[in-house]
């Protein structure tokens, strides 16, 4: 793995209109680990995640200052084509949003638009990534069916497979289990644990137990600020800040 799997966020401030959503964020995301961004809802977790692959571009009245370094590049101010950077980061959103295509088409989409048209190559990739996400056995006979025919849990894994197919270095997941039943959400969590030896994974969640189950590294946010960050063991066993202690005890959500 190249060293670019590591993300360094420095002095990041983000405003929507006059409201400050992110306040002077400094954080690091280690490579090949699962980093959990933890915090109660409305604390800016999702916004931070979207800043990482600049989906913030899509919203109005946003002002950003600071740097987000990936490799040696500041992706907030880079001259590199933003689509190339986005391709390095797979996104898994709160609810699965399958593209309006077949199961096969969903996974082949990213490959096709990056110029791969050989059928054999596409077939192999589709099969490979469906196997990685343990979907192959469930869908191999109906690859041509619309993706919306799958269950929500399957759709979420399909969206993950779709993201992996363009060969990213980082996986960004925004509350990936919030729309899923317990069994499907366990499946996703297990997948992340399996995948972390190849990818750097960032998961946003407000579920403390989920964070405990999967995190290697934790960034705890509250009202737009990073309160505490560090390796998971230390964070949960021996938190330093009062707010963190209160949150882990369940004082607020």
């Amino acid at each position: 793995m190249e060293p670019s799997g590591k993300i360094k966020i420095q002095n990041l401030n983000l405003f929507i209109g006059k409201q400050q959503i992110l306040k002077n964020i400094n954080a690091e995301i280690p490579e090949n680990k699962i980093t959990v961004i933890l915090g109660p809802s409305g604390c800016g977790k999702t916004t931070l995640l979207k800043t990482l692959n600049r989906l913030t571009d899509l919203y109005e009245n946003i002002k950003i200052s600071g740097t987000v370094e990936m490799g040696n590049e500041d992706i907030l101010h880079t001259k590199t084509d933003i689509t190339k950077i986005r391709r390095k980061m797979g996104l898994v959103s709160q609810r699965p949003y399958p593209l309006p295509m077949s199961i096969y088409g969903n996974i082949a989409y990213g490959l096709k638009i990056s110029g791969h048209t050989k059928k054999q190559f596409l077939d192999e990739k589709v099969e490979y990534y469906l196997k990685v996400t343990h979907l192959w056995e469930e869908v191999k006979d109906r690859l041509k069916q619309p993706a919306s025919a799958l269950s929500v849990g399957q759709q979420q894994r399909l969206c993950l497979a779709r993201g992996l197919a363009v060969d990213p270095e980082i996986i960004l997941a925004d509350e990936p289990a919030s729309a899923l039943d317990p069994v499907s959400s366990m499946a996703i969590e297990e997948l992340f644990t399996e995948l972390k030896s190849w990818y750097t994974i960032v998961v946003v969640t407000h579920i403390l137990r989920q964070a405990k189950r999967i995190a290697d590294h934790v960034i705890f946010m509250y009202l737009g600020e990073v309160i505490e960050q560090g390796p998971a063991g230390e964070f949960f066993e021996n938190p330093k800040m009062e707010k963190t202690k209160a949150y882990i005890k369940g004082a607020f959500n």
């Binding site: 692959n53 989906l55 899509l58 689509t83 190339k84 986005r86 391709r87 980061m89 797979g90 996104l91 959103s93 709160q94 609810r95 949003y97 593209l99 989409y109 990213g110 638009i113 990056s114 969206c159 779709r162 993201g163 363009v166 960004l172």
Partner: peptide
């Protein structure tokens, strides 16, 4: 059409 759908496509490197 949900905004997230275009976000998903953009995240896959589509223009």
């Amino acid at each position: 059409i949900p905004e997230e759908l275009s976000e998903a496509s953009l995240s896959l490197g589509a223009t």
